[in-house]
Design a protein around this nucleic acid. Structure first.
Lengths: 104, 104
DNA sequence: TTGACATATCAAAAATATTTGATATTATGG
DNA sequence: CCATAATATCAAATATTTTTGATATGTCAA
């Protein structure tokens, strides 16, 4: 099962929580490679840096935290890296909380 | 609305998460006062201390964190204090995550 | 291949969170 | 009221997390 405490920790930082909402709302494919199509909606580091006003290593650190908690997936796209929200982990997280705390 | 980041932080410590599961599972009223009845299922500090093997000030610290996140309610009962899980906050938390991350 | 750009990693500094032991507060029962 | 028991608070010590700047790695395009 998912590591509920680890996921809670990943979500417990305001910057990371914000990044997750940005990923959830992104509806445009990012960093297109000429000739490729069907880009899934996601965000790359550079967009996160400029939107949040954070330096590169800081974004990188937080994305690693989210990745290791299973909350995002990654896809190298050319020299960029694009991140996607992993809704499966979030659903499992919610299900586990429902179970652990006898909510339904 | 609930402070989702704050709740996530409260749940992000293994001890606090464990305490929440213990509160969710408690089915016996605790620390009865002679003459009173209808005790809601809950746990007092002393039970948490002995079950978890933690010293008093440490339990107190963690219960305060949970209380301030709205995850538990408290009731002084005689010279004891009994804690209850606050399922409303947990439900609101889940609802907010569903909304923020477009899960359904 | 080289230069430019994007990302990853690292070590040190800074900021936060947790643990502990001591002391304070509050309630109870004698 | 007094002694005892339970909980709260506090300051100091520890531990953990986050931030930063520097450097390394990897990719692309010329």
């Amino acid at each position: 099962m998912v590591d509920t405490v680890k996921i809670a920790r990943a979500l417990s930082d305001p910057i990371r929580y914000k990044i997750m909402t940005m990923l959830a709302q992104s509806d445009l494919g990012c960093c297109p490679i000429p000739g490729e199509k069907d880009l899934r909606p996601g965000l790359c580091n550079c967009e996160l840096m400029s939107e949040l006003g954070l330096i590169q290593s800081r974004v990188s650190y937080h994305m690693k935290e989210l990745y290791e908690a299973g909350l995002v997936t990654e896809e190298p796209r050319g020299k960029w890296k694009v991140y996607f929200i992993n809704t499966k982990t979030l659903r499992d997280f919610i299900q586990e909380i429902n179970k652990d705390f006898a909510l339904k």
